[in-house]
């Protein structure tokens, strides 16, 4: 069986989740590799979720929110933008290629944009190949789920 990338997608409820929904209802074709988790806002993204996804077996993680200035909660996406730069540096330290993580903006009306982005990101992950984490996960037991 050929390898297929597994990608976790964290989408904000108001723009990107609705945008991805629109891509579906518009019958747009795009790779089925992204598995979506709905958040209320990308501002809710705890960086640990990204690391946890890689630990759980994701080959890539994509976070998508409203366009800057359009956040339903005013500025949650800016908070995510700040975290994204840190996440990339931490990923590099962990031996995970920073390109395996991506932050995008997709509005509720941009189904085609979501389809394009997911195809593009899936292609990126495909090129990078499967993620091989070393035996004991470095993330094991670092987080107390409240």
């Amino acid at each position: 069986m050929s390898w297929e990338p597994k990608i976790a997608g964290f989408l904000c409820n108001w723009c990107s989740y609705t945008g991805a929904d629109l891509a579906g209802t518009s019958r747009l074709h795009y790779p089925p590799n992204i598995r979506v988790i709905r958040m209320m806002c990308t501002g809710r993204m705890d960086p640990v979720f990204v690391f946890k996804a890689f630990q759980a077996g994701a080959d890539g993680v994509i976070v998508s929110g409203c366009h800057p200035g359009d956040c339903h909660y005013q500025e949650g996406n800016f908070k995510m933008l700040r975290r994204a730069h840190l996440i990339k540096r931490v990923l590099a330290d962990l031996g995970i290629h920073p390109d395996r993580f991506r932050l995008t903006w997709v509005s509720a009306s941009e189904g085609d944009r979501w389809a394009r982005f997911s195809a593009d990101f899936t292609q990126t992950i495909r090129t990078l190949g499967p993620l091989k984490l070393t035996s004991d996960s470095i993330l094991e037991g670092t987080y107390n789920a409240a």
Partner: peptide
């Protein structure tokens, strides 16, 4: 509705 535990479980469930 979006506790850390719930989201972690979702991530686990995905993969």
């Amino acid at each position: 509705g979006f506790t850390n535990a719930q989201i972690m479980a979702e991530i686990d469930g995905l993969f």
